[in-house]
Simulated scan of single mutants.
Amino acid sequence: MEIRHASNPQEVKGYDTTRLRQDFLMESLFTENELMLYYSHVDRFITGGAYPTTAVIKLEADRKDMGSDFFLERREIGIINIGAQGKVTVDGTTYVLEPKDGLYIGLGAQDVVFESVDAANPAKFYINSTPAHKNYPTVQISISEATPAHLGSAATSNERVINKYIHPQGVQSCQLVMGLTMLKPNNMWNTMPCHTHNRRSEVYFYFDMPEDGVVFHFMGEPQETRHLVVRNEQALISPSWSIHSGVGSSNYTFIWGMAGENQIFDDMDHVAMQDIM
C-alpha cells in the first residue's frame, strides 16, 4: 500500500510538476492478479484497483498501515466495475457485476474476493474506502438503478450525466459518497464553473479514454490554480481546499468518491468564472 500525506495549500503553491504528481496523482491502479492500494491521510481515504485475470484477488488489510485484522473491520467500501463481467463474493454471497455496475459493502464484512467471469475478458474493480462507525447492508447497484442528473450543454462543451450510486437518497453509507459521470460525445469539460467543498475531500478517477487521450485536471486554490496531465485509468486526490475540474482531448468517463463532514452532494462553494486564476 502506498501512503500519501496531507497537504497545505500554502506549500502546494510552490510545487513543481514532479512534486504535484508525486503527492496527488495515482498512476498505477491495475496490475494483473494484484490488489493495488493508495492510502491518503486526507480523510483516511483508500483508493485502489483489483484486476483478476487467471487468479482471484482477496481484499486484505495491511496490518502495519491500517492497524486492523481485516480490511473492513473499521471501514466501508464502494466498488465499480470498469471492465468486463466480474464477481465479488462477500462472506460467501456472490454478486455478479456487469460493466459500470457498483457494489457497496458495509462495516464488518470479513471475506471479500474479486474474480473475473472470463479471464480473456477480465473485470476491473475500482475501489474507494473510508472509515465507518456503523454497519450498513451490502447493496449491488446497476448503472440503470443509479440516480441520474443531466447537467451542462453542448454550447459549453460539458453536457454530461451524473450517476449517483452511494448517496443519502440512494444506497446508504456512513460517509462515503460515490458515483460515475459520463460526458456526451463532443463534450470535454467537467465541473466548470468549478467549486470547492471545504467539508469534504474527493478522489477523481478518469477512464474510457483513448490510448493517446489525456485530461488536463485543474486543482489548487481558486486564485492559485495548477494542473496535472492525467491518462486513462489514473486517479487524483483532491483535498477540500482545492478545485477539481478537467478538460479532455475527447469525451471521457470519471468516477468520483467523497468523504468528510457531510454527504450533501450540493454542498459546494462555487467559484465565479471571473474569480478563477
Rank of each mutant, 00 (worst) to 15 (best):
I3C: 02
S7V: 09
Q10I: 11
K13M: 14
T18M: 11
Y38V: 06
S40I: 06
R44T: 14
I46K: 04
G48R: 02
G48S: 10
G49W: 06
Y51C: 07
P52N: 10
A55W: 04
V56W: 08
E60C: 05
D65M: 10
F70A: 00
G86P: 02
K87H: 12
V88P: 00
K100S: 13
G106H: 03
G106P: 13
F114E: 00
S116Q: 08
P122T: 12
F125T: 02
F125V: 02
I127T: 01
I127Y: 02
I127L: 10
N128V: 07
N128D: 15
P131L: 05
K134L: 09
N135W: 01
P137D: 14
Q140N: 03
Q140M: 10
I141Q: 07
H150K: 15
A154D: 14
A155K: 12
E159N: 11
N163E: 14
Y165K: 04
H167N: 13
H167M: 03
Q169K: 09
V171K: 00
V171Q: 01
G179N: 09
L183H: 09
P185G: 09
M192C: 07
R199T: 14
V203D: 01
F205K: 02
D208S: 09
D212S: 10
G220W: 04
G220K: 02
P222I: 04
P222W: 05
T225C: 08
R226K: 15
R226T: 13
N232R: 11
A235N: 13
S238E: 02
G246P: 11
F254R: 04
I255S: 09
W256C: 09
G260M: 02
G260T: 07
E261C: 07
Q263C: 05
H270Q: 09
V271W: 09
V271S: 11
M273E: 14
Q274G: 05
